[in-house]
Write a protein that binds this DNA or RNA. Structure first.
Lengths: 248, 248
DNA sequence: TCAAAAGTGTTGTTGTTACACCCATGC
DNA sequence: GCATGGGTGTAACAACAACACTTTTGA
């Protein structure tokens, strides 16, 4: 198989042998710890070669008959039990030599990573400790050097998260059914930084839009005046789909 | 190989055989014909199985040693000669059974499509007629039924194009070095529809931002007062990166 | 001189920002 | 009663939309 062994050669005549791929799915799974105002990302310790002993994004290889999205959900459900989540595709990283396995095998199988981005409810997300330790929520700003190109993927996911918050109602996927306006505000400040908007302005802007239902119910959290609980009304939000910057 | 032949069975014991993939790259290539106010997309006629005789997005399979981006540029350069272009990755479509070739082969090879989105200069883009006919610019709103899931990919690309226009300076990749404000405005209206903004407001908004250099040169196009030629100043634009809705 | 295209200005309305202030509760 | 967090109001300012108007050209 001459073409295969010559894959590193820079040849004027293009070599036309198709690459064979295994396709992986790597998930950037975020959650927000509103109590401590921290944005968290789920990391797992690798117990297999390659990159054994390094932290990485949870991932898996796609199986026969399985769609990319299915695979992404499978990784997620193997690592955490969670009721509410948001998931979407992020980006596909697929240059040659991004995975050490490519070099080690002489058959030239390439590894491609279709990364996904997920947001889950922190309070209800229960980590599945699979015997050995090695799965943890890391604060976004204390993430170590990760395996493969996972730091790059994480950066990409973080950017997407911030954008999503600005124009889409992802936040409500991850808040409880009933929430206070302060819960919502905290979520935004922990992700976007607390200089994005004044609380009272954030408040009146969102209420004016009219997709937050006042439930009338009040809840008291320690000292101070009790807060009103709101519910997100997806129908009332519909007209704002595709409109940019709804939340900022 | 029991697992392979049973891939359609819904089994309680998950089958764990990894899928083997060929990876394709499909390009949504846009250009704007400012003379006729039309948004165009490049389509090619398929001359091979599967889907022979149908129009499709130009695409190819990724070769050994070739990155996804390389493959995307290769497709492009095989179809058109062009100096200035913008290209970015769009989305990866990879469900099982999206490609008829998957069914026809018994070895269960899957076909995955990493779609890309490109914008080229219409006036300088020269189509490469490869003997047989079968490559053409189609007005976006007259696109026929395409092969595979390419209509879906195209829709996705169109949405991305409109978003890009709103917050990023892609337009200048596709305008000549020197252009009039009307050229710019025409480009925006043909893509976004002509109800997106009044010309004079568009004009003053952009000029106030300060990243359009007045060259002092005037150009006369038929009747009417001659227009000033402007140049895009990438440095002056830098502060607006990451800021949403610069252009609207 | 007139139509056509470029470019400027004006005005009412809306949104944003940065606050000051009032309200209801626990301790 | 006072600290604490929830909630309302407002005034200065910036942005936006609609449209009238002026300028400079070719025919």
């Amino acid at each position: 198989m001459p073409g295969r062994t010559q894959k590193k050669l820079v040849d004027s005549a293009p070599q036309r042998i198709l690459a064979d791929f295994k396709v992986g799915v790597d998930n950037v799974i975020f959650s927000v710890d509103t109590d401590q105002n921290r944005l968290l990302v789920l990391l797992v310790m690798r117990h297999e070669e390659p990159c054994i002993g390094q932290w990485s994004l949870p991932g898996t290889l796609v199986r026969q008959g399985e769609s990319l999205e299915d695979a992404a959900y499978r990784v997620l459900s193997e690592k955490i039990r969670v009721e509410n989540l948001y998931l979407e595709q992020l980006y596909t990283f697929g240059g040659p030599d991004r995975d050490p396995r490519e070099a080690s095998t002489s058959y030239g199988v390439r590894y491609l990573s279709v990364s996904h981005f997920a947001l889950v409810r922190y309070v209800e997300a229960e980590l599945i400790a699979d015997g050995v330790s090695g799965i943890a929520w890391y604060p976004m700003h204390q993430v170590p050097k990760l395996a493969f190109d996972h730091n790059q993927i994480l950066e990409y996911g973080y950017r997407r998260l911030r954008n999503k918050l600005e124009y889409s109602p992802v936040a409500f996927e991850v808040l409880p059914e009933l929430f206070t306006l302060n819960d919502l505000y905290q979520l935004y400040t922990t992700v976007l930084g607390d200089n994005f908007s004044d609380y009272s302005n954030f408040r009146s802007r969102l209420l004016k839009l009219g997709f937050l239902q006042d439930t009338g119910v009040k809840v008291s959290r320690g000292a101070g005046r009790p807060a009103t609980l709101y519910r997100f009304d997806a129908n009332a939000f519909a007209p704002f789909k595709d409109k940019p910057l709804v939340f900022i």
